[in-house]
């Protein structure tokens, strides 16, 4: 119930912000918002494993890259439409996620962190060196920009800032819906049980491996969705799509926003996309300041910004909610 309230609150804020963006119609702001929306999809995906299941997938960007490359190859080499390539990208990412899962889901804690990270790094070097397919470091260039005619709205094109934002927000909406329903389906409760005490979860019949695979599959699929939209938006896919920097950013979004919460990753995504932009005035001190802000954030809001007091007060007025941080959504 409280999850539903929180979701609708989030949607209201998001709708308001999006409407404001479309009205102001500033290309620069729209670009930041578009990237924010795309990365919010990824943050939602990473949060399924890192926040709900409790396994720190430090190679998550792998699925972003798989989605990007699948889309690029299918549109450029096979002449598929972007929409069809997007569906294929999601499926491909899920498949890769399940394969990776076979190896990494035997591991826990820091082992899991480094193992998933190793997969990401291998993918990065494969993308650089498998030139016949990936065109090496130069990457795949000139993806056709997504464009379609919609009945009521007219033509939506990714080349147009407003069109790109609309596409990214649609993707985010899909991601929110999927995450919301999966977490509410009973899988969320099983994940939380596994996260909080895996042995206890097993002792009452929860199949940790099966639920971990489910989390990994959905999270990989969202990564593929984000990667496909990103590829369509920027029109180029290079090995840098697997870059460590992307991984760090998505992780920051989830942890700074609040692991295991609904709104946290989305709030975190827009924060992490926006703050460095705001810091541009600091010129060359921009990144050091950003680093210090991260340290401050983790010292002062270790549960994420959505756990901070104003939010907590807001929540206190609501019925049937645990008195302490909403690390998980309440009963439906």
């Amino acid at each position: 119930m409280s999850a539903r309230v929180r979701i609708s609150l989030g949607l209201a804020v998001a709708t308001g912000a999006a409407a404001a963006l479309f009205i102001v119609d500033d290309a620069y702001l729209m670009r930041i918002a578009t990237l924010g929306a795309i990365f919010a999809i990824l943050a939602l995906g990473l949060n399924l494993t890192a926040g709900h299941l409790g396994l720190f997938d430090f190679g998550y960007i792998l699925y972003f890259g798989i989605g990007g490359y699948t889309t690029a190859l299918l549109t450029l080499r096979a002449g598929w439409s972007w929409e069809a390539a997007l569906v294929a990208s999601v499926l491909m990412s899920v498949a890769v996620g399940l394969l990776v899962g076979v190896v990494v889901l035997r591991l826990r804690g820091p082992y899991f962190v480094i193992a998933t990270f190793s997969f990401l790094t291998v993918a990065y070097y494969v993308a650089i060196n498998w030139k016949e397919v990936t065109n090496g470091p130069l990457g795949l260039i000139g993806l056709p920009a997504p464009a379609f005619n919609l009945p009521a709205i007219g033509r939506v094109e990714a080349l147009d800032p407003a069109g790109a934002l609309a596409i990214a927000l649609t993707g985010l909406l899909i991601a929110v819906a999927v995450v919301w329903r999966v977490v509410e389906s009973g899988a969320g409760r099983a994940w939380h049980a596994i996260r909080d005490n895996e042995d206890l979860a097993a002792s009452v019949g929860i199949d940790a491996t099966a639920y971990a695979f489910l989390a990994l599959a959905v999270s990989a699929g969202l990564g593929g969705l984000g990667g496909s939209i990103y590829a369509g938006y920027v029109g180029i896919v290079t090995p840098e799509i697997f870059a460590f920097g992307h991984m760090v950013n998505v992780l920051l979004m989830v942890v700074i926003g609040g692991t295991g919460t609904f709104l946290g990753p989305i709030v975190g995504a827009f924060l992490v996309e926006t703050v460095p932009e705001l810091l541009r005035v600091a010129e060359s001190f921009r990144l050091p300041i950003f680093g210090l802000l991260l340290i401050a954030a983790i010292l002062f809001a270790p549960q994420g910004v959505v756990s901070l007091r104003p939010w907590r007060a807001l929540r206190a007025g609501r019925p049937r909610v645990p008195p302490v941080p909403p690390v998980e959504e309440g009963p439906a």
């Binding site: 409760r189 939380h192 049980a193 996260r195 909080d196 005490n197 206890l200 979860a201 295991g260 645990p322 690390v327 998980e328 309440g330 009963p331």
Partner: peptide
């Protein structure tokens, strides 16, 4: 117990 959750959960 599942520490982060309410007793009923």
């Amino acid at each position: 117990v599942f520490g982060d959750q309410t007793a009923v959960d």
